[in-house]
């Protein structure tokens, strides 16, 4: 009987838990957050709700005039714009190596490269904090063999963000590497053979066959990496507490501090809304930039944001 008809009843039962949870604990909080961003809810209001005020857009005005916000935005963009592409390129390079037909022990290499992805971010951030130590850290010690004098990685405002980017690349490249490997495998070998017959060398084959063939993969990897990198939090929280001189205070860390350290809930909610808007704009920009001839193609591969906070 239900062969062509609707199965509304069953569907409701199957969907209720998942959709109910998402509505109540994911979408509703976003709406509440927008409302809170129009209030000056804070410590005083927690003790005595009578002291809370509706302040309209005053929080936005305040945040947009606050140097700390702009600094946090700059830091976050630094991480996204420099760290993101470096991560993706590293993944691509390693994926090309890994896909080379001459490589032995592929499986072992793949497992090794992927291992950092599954490690706990907090734990490896602590590990790297010691590796970066200017006196006793392994990294400066190795660099000293190349005549490079010790770099105060986490103490120098100019080096702290590069240090965090380096950690992020190490931690994340394995994830996108796998997606690139799958993307490479999906390119028909005949295309390469045809190109070879046309006399194309390795570089031309890469430019004319590999790159176009990977375009949907690039779109997917680029988007998920960017969205994930906008959420930078645990690395600076553990390694630098946002310092030195606020050089690693990201938007999410700034939001966390205003919200959960100082309980300036109105201001923190404003930051959350702004972060959402910025992420949306950046996504649209990237979609526009990478728009392929085949628009709206569903990426061939899918995975969550590679940073792995909450599945």
């Amino acid at each position: 009987m239900s062969r062509l008809g609707y199965q509304n009843g069953s569907a409701a039962v199957f969907l209720a838990p998942a959709l109910g949870l998402l509505l109540l604990f994911f979408f509703l909080p976003v709406v509440i957050g927008v409302f809170l961003s129009l209030t000056d809810f804070d410590v005083y209001a927690i003790g005595n709700p009578g002291t809370a005020r509706m302040v309209g857009l005053a929080n936005y005005q305040y945040v947009l005039g606050d140097a700390t916000f702009w600094k946090a935005l700059r830091n976050t963009l630094y991480f996204v714009v420099v760290g993101g592409p470096l991560s993706v390129l590293t993944s691509l390079g390693v994926a090309l190596l890994l896909s080379h037909r001459a490589l032995r022990l592929q499986g072992i290499f793949r497992t090794i490269y992927f291992a950092p992805v599954v490690t706990t971010l907090v734990a490896v951030a602590i590990v790297w904090r010691y590796l970066y130590h200017p006196r006793y850290g392994l990294i400066d010690h190795v660099l000293s063999h190349f005549g490079i004098s010790p770099i105060d990685w986490l103490g120098d405002p100019n080096w702290a963000m590069p240090a965090i980017i380096l950690l992020a690349i190490w931690k994340n490249f394995g994830y996108n590497m796998l997606i690139f490997v799958a993307g490479l495998q999906s390119i028909p070998t005949e295309l390469y053979e045809a190109a070879s017959i046309d006399g194309a060398g390795a570089w031309r084959r890469f430019v004319h066959v590999t790159v176009p063939g990977l375009r949907p993969t690039f779109l997917f990897v680029g988007l998920t990496t960017m969205i994930g990198y906008f959420q930078l939090f645990a690395e600076p929280y553990v390694m630098t507490q946002g310092g030195p001189l606020g050089a690693t205070r990201s938007l999410v860390l700034h939001m966390y501090e205003q919200g959960f350290r100082w309980w300036r809930i109105g201001e923190a909610s404003t930051l959350a809304v702004l972060l959402l808007l910025i992420t949306l704009v950046a996504t649209l920009v990237q979609l526009g930039m990478q728009r392929t001839r085949k628009t709206n193609e569903i990426p061939r591969t899918a995975g969550p944001a590679p940073r792995g906070d909450a599945a």
């Binding site: 410590v43 005083y44 405002p157 001189l245 606020g246 350290r261 100082w262």
Partner: peptide
């Protein structure tokens, strides 16, 4: 006052600014 912890943090940030830069 309730804000003292936050103010202390801001004092530290400015001291760090003067020292480091």
């Amino acid at each position: 006052i309730p804000e003292w912890e936050q103010i202390a943090t801001v004092v530290q940030e400015h001291a760090e600014l003067a020292v480091r830069t």
